[in-house]
């Protein structure tokens, strides 16, 4: 390995790597050297220590609540970790990270209450299962491409459905979203957009139907929706809803629109 760390060219390379100006190939090269040489790793770490404090200048932005839910689901963490409660008043709060507004947007007490009510509501279907607060689905077209992503917000009883790219739908037709409980007939959820995100409310009957094995589907219908209450046009996309809460399917393109408005 020809990487003497006292060489000023190498030093510059590591600094450039940490700053972020190298292209993908050069970055990969530095990372390989870091993995194989303790000296290189130490030199890079030193530059990280020098330059990283600059992130204090990035304005903090509260991430949408559902990001944490997705992380928790993906890691199959317990349903009620400490993030569900603010830290004890006595806990030191790092001012540097300026995270004080986190709880204001979260409204967690209300969310927990809603989740508890929903658990009661669903308990007749599947006892002793606490449903996750969010369900996600990627609704895939026949060609294997994801047409829409859906995020079901059980607490707020609504679903946000986002096209991953503009969908070509005939002028006098419109896409309609259906919930298909396992082994049952489709239930109309509502009309959705071919090129814009749509939020649809979920009534009690729909909420109660989000059991294991449920799927979402999109069919092409007349503009006002299917006249029969069942899909009349072709089903152009379909996706399973992960209701286990253990390993939720992460949408390829997550909704850019926070569920809380």
């Amino acid at each position: 390995m020809n990487t003497p760390t006292d060489d000023s060219n190498s030093q510059l390379r590591y600094a450039e790597y940490v700053l972020g100006v190298l292209d993908a190939d050069a970055r990969a090269e530095v990372e390989r050297d870091m993995a194989s040489s303790e000296a290189v790793a130490t030199a890079v770490a030193l530059w990280q220590r020098r330059l990283l404090p600059l992130i204090a200048e990035a304005a903090p932005i509260e991430p949408p609540e559902y990001v944490w839910h997705r992380i928790r689901h993906q890691l199959a963490l317990d349903a009620s970790p400490a993030v569900a409660r603010p830290a004890d008043a006595g806990t030191a709060r790092p001012r540097w990270w300026n995270a004080l507004r986190f709880w204001q947007g979260l409204g967690l007490g209300a969310s927990l209450l809603a989740a508890a009510c929903l658990a009661l509501l669903l308990s007749s279907h599947k006892p002793s299962v606490t449903p996750p607060s969010y369900l996600a689905s990627t609704i895939t077209q026949g060609n294997g491409q994801v047409g829409w992503t859906a995020t079901v917000d059980l607490n707020h009883q609504r679903v946000v459905i986002v096209p991953t790219r503009p969908q070509a739908i005939a002028r006098d037709r419109a896409p309609e979203l259906w919930l298909i409980p396992e082994g049952q007939r489709p239930i109309a959820v509502g009309m959705i957009g071919g090129d814009a995100p749509v939020t649809l409310p979920l009534d009690r009957r729909l909420l109660a139907s989000f059991g294991p094995g449920a799927a979402l589907a999109v069919s092409v219908e007349p503009p006002g929706g299917s006249p029969t209450g069942q899909p009349t046009g072709p089903v152009i996309a379909k996706g399973l809803l992960d209701t286990s809460g253990a390993a939720i399917h992460v949408p390829l393109a997550s909704p850019a629109h926070p569920l809380d408005t």
Binding site: I55, A59, E62, V67, F102
Partner: peptide, 9 residues
């Protein structure tokens, strides 16, 4: 909770 706003920013 403490670090996400800065990191998201």
């Amino acid at each position: 909770r403490l670090t996400s706003p800065r990191l998201y920013g």
